[in-house]
Design a protein around this nucleic acid. Structure first.
Lengths: 206, 206
DNA sequence: GTCTATATGGTGATAGAC
DNA sequence: GTCTATCACCATATAGAC
């Protein structure tokens, strides 16, 4: 008999301040933990205290949200690591800066970074936005330049630039496998240890 | 009017020979390419020419199929790499064997391996079967032993065993990011290059 | 052992009121 | 800008016939 709604609206619905950013952050947390497919936008909406439809007001699709996370994370990485490297002089110092800055940024933006790594292409993801691919190439080229210049000025041995660059990125990115954000060890420490191992080498031969 | 089925069965339905294995192979291919969530069992069934229900006759759930792929792949890796290492003498030779055998096995069992890497735990997967975790630890301990013995007999510098082991596994596993199964370069070549770089070091200092 | 048919449930996405 | 309500879809998984 009672036709009135259970929860009559008393006024205007709450406005979501800084909506796009908050959605991206919540989504990154969710996708990072549960994966892109398992992370539901209903949960994102719920956590922000709005409806799912409200989320769709700001982004056209789930994929669009994911892409935005990746692009944003890559952009930040590029700037942060780029600046850090630029502030160092000499091949070894630059390489060390690259590695520790990368690790720092990874830890600081943990879930977004995890998001990026799991959908990173890697296993041949053709849907990846061109913009992201471009930024990734740009990022890798910073590292390649460090290695190439180090070889040119005699700081580094005459190794293959691609092999060396890839091995650095492998160690840094696979760190997600060992790193625990709540653990005692900072990502930067990992990076430093890798740096020393890689530059000095494992072998005791001279 | 015609009540007869379009495709009346002439006899017994086809028997799926070696059913479990064929399901695992087809599923590994699918999961590796599309991911666990996107890979549908309907497709597996279709490709094998049976119904989805038939697949469920052999496995209780989708997760069970996935787990079986991982376990099987890890078991094979453990045996293959273990034998290869055992056949080599000396720290450097053993490490080289470990790395090249790992790469070989990776290439030979490409899609299953990709399956394993994407759901590998890494990003804190609590659902991972205990059996898989155990095998992973066992596998890692082969490598740790190589490094530790190499340090003990003076072949290697006195590095941190965990750091060194992790850097080796990082390079090998993140290879999935650069390796193209249809490309000109074999996985073993990657591994060899990483081996040389890691043992000799990047720096030209003596 | 395999089939057809269906239960069940959750997802992304949309329409239209306010 | 946000809501409620709902659509359309497709997945896993199951029941029961043959």
């Amino acid at each position: 008999m009672n036709k009135s709604k259970l929860k009559p609206r008393m006024g205007r619905p709450p406005v979501l301040e800084n909506a796009r950013n908050r959605i991206l952050e919540e989504a990154a947390l969710l996708f990072g933990k549960d994966g892109f497919d398992n992370g539901s936008l209903s949960v994102v909406a719920e956590r922000l205290g709005v409806s799912k439809a409200a989320v769709y007001h700001y982004f056209g699709s789930k994929q669009e949200i994911y892409d935005a996370i990746i692009i944003r994370t890559l952009e930040g990485l590029l700037i942060f690591v780029g600046n850090s490297v630029a502030a160092s002089k000499g091949g070894e110092a630059k390489l060390k800066s690259f590695m520790t800055a990368h690790a720092s940024y990874f830890e600081e933006n943990y879930w977004s970074f995890v998001c990026m790594l799991i959908g990173y292409g890697g296993m041949a993801n053709p849907g990846l936005k061109f913009e992201a691919t471009q930024k990734r190439v740009e990022y890798e080229s910073i590292l390649r330049k460090i290695v190439a210049e180090g070889i040119a000025d005699g700081t580094f041995r005459n190794v293959d630039v691609t092999t060396a660059s890839h091995s650095v990125l492998s160690m840094l990115n696979w760190m997600v496998r060992w790193f625990n954000p709540n653990g005692p060890k900072r990502a930067e420490e990992f990076a430093l240890e890798y740096f020393e191992l890689l530059t000095l080498g494992l072998s005791s031969r001279q």
